[in-house]
Design a protein around this nucleic acid. Structure first.
Length: 429
DNA sequence: AGCACA
């Protein structure tokens, strides 16, 4: 027993500047913890809602002695440590630092990201979600979607205080059984904060609601939960046309960046937005034009063509169900060319999307290439051609209008000699 | 009332 401590303590722990607190009152806040601990030193990190009952926590002092002071004070005190009158038990943690306490989803915001575990999208209706979360305040908007993590919902409250009260109360708990279909065993909620502040809800539908705007149109395609495909003249299903193209990129031997896509797709008209993402292990991109006509021309011209010689980065195009992409204005995976100036990005989250036809105003401010756009050939093409596709440089009359732009032939707009990525520019073959 | 995995 040479290594054990006093016999009255079954678990003797070596001091740590991290303390483990248990028997905390329900929903004990970080502030209450700090209040309890601060007579002994500054708290530099915390982790709350720990344990099955979520009534445990860790606090970390900068200095080991401060933790020792606190533990020994309460070990000999006649008054136990208390929060809201409830006795709190304090001991040294068996770890010496609180690791990675704050994930991005822990930064409070007014929009919650809710993951519903153990259910499929059809099991939890948006009305049930609304009911559950309305207990904490007015729910402005809800958007639901399916991701790899499962069925998820973004829930927008008025402010982060309301959102955090909902999160604190519901995170890790379950939706009441009586609100769920019988075949569902349980639906546990995992809740974090979204980085969103204002959701863009296009339609009232089975997957999204805007409770601040009851006159928002009902989504004509989502109303019965099924995609209604028109039937083409040949009798085959035909996807509805859209101003947004979905590009699947096959045989992607070379990086396909936002700039590369912009170069390629600008040959047919003004590209408003681009988003690149991974799906099922392959790379896809959404390319938004102002109108269906432009998208249609681009789709017909580019389908099956390759961005680079040698069969690399072959494009397969279809119409997206989107009509207006909600993308980060400037990131390595997305671009919003309708925002003329990066200094205005702060205002970008308020861009409304109301209907398909809504076109951003290009008033005088025709698209300017963002700074530092790569992808353009330094070895200029043959020179007198109409240029390496539109989009760069001046092209009066091309923007702001509709389809007056004459698309360049998609074949090798940069000439076809010595072409080979990544040293050369993308061109269509 | 007894140790966290985002």
């Amino acid at each position: 027993m040479s290594t054990s401590g006093p016999p009255q303590f079954r678990y003797t722990q070596t001091p740590s500047k991290v303390l483990h607190l248990r028997n905390l009152p329900w929903e004990c806040s970080e502030e209450e913890l700090v209040e309890l601990c601060k007579p002994f030193g500054k708290i530099v990190n915390t982790k709350i809602n720990v344990g099955a009952n979520r009534n445990q926590a860790f606090v970390e002092f900068p200095d080991l002695n401060q933790a020792i002071q606190m533990v020994s004070y309460y070990a000999s005190s006649s008054e136990p440590a208390q929060v809201r009158g409830k006795t709190v038990y304090i001991q040294y943690s068996n770890r010496h630092e609180i690791v990675n306490n704050k994930s991005p989803g822990d930064n409070p915001g007014n929009v919650l990201l809710v993951t519903m575990e153990g259910v499929e999208a059809g099991d939890v209706s948006i009305d049930v979600i609304h009911l559950v979360f309305s207990a904490f305040g007015f729910v402005h908007k809800i958007a639901t979607f399916e991701k790899a993590a499962g069925f998820q919902a973004l829930i927008q409250f008025t402010d982060s205080e309301t959102a955090s009260s909902a999160r604190n109360a519901l995170d890790g708990r379950s939706i009441p059984r009586y609100l769920l279909p019988e075949h569902v065993g349980s639906c546990n909620l995992r809740i974090s904060y979204s980085a969103h502040t204002d959701l863009n809800i296009k339609f009232q539908s089975h997957r999204s609601r805007d409770y601040t705007n009851p006159y928002l149109p009902v989504n004509p395609t989502a109303i019965d939960g099924s995609l209604q495909l028109a039937v083409g003249p040949d009798g085959r299903k035909k996807e509805p046309e859209s101003n947004v193209l979905l590009a699947s990129i096959e045989n992607m031997q070379y990086a396909v960046t936002v700039d590369v896509l912009h170069t390629v797709f600008s040959a047919f008209g003004n590209v408003q937005k681009i988003a690149i993402f991974e799906k099922n292990g392959s790379t896809q991109a959404l390319i938004q034009y102002p109108d269906i006509a432009t998208a249609s021309v681009a789709k017909e011209a580019l389908e099956g063509h390759c961005i680079y010689d040698g069969g690399y980065c072959k494009l397969h195009l279809s119409y997206s169900r989107h009509t207006d992409l909600n993308v980060k204005a400037y990131s390595d995976k997305s671009r919003d060319y309708t925002i003329p100036d990066a200094s205005l990005l702060a205002a970008s989250s308020q861009i409304p999307w109301q209907n398909h036809q809504a076109m951003p105003a290009y008033g005088g401010n025709a698209y300017n290439a963002p700074p530092g756009v790569p992808g353009m050939p330094h070895q200029a093409p043959t020179g007198q051609s109409p240029g390496p596709g539109p989009g760069y440089g001046s092209n009066p009359g091309s923007y702001g209008g509709h389809t007056s732009y004459q698309p360049q032939p998609p074949m090798h707009p940069y000439g076809n000699t010595a072409a080979g990525p990544p040293h050369s520019s993308p061109h269509i073959s």
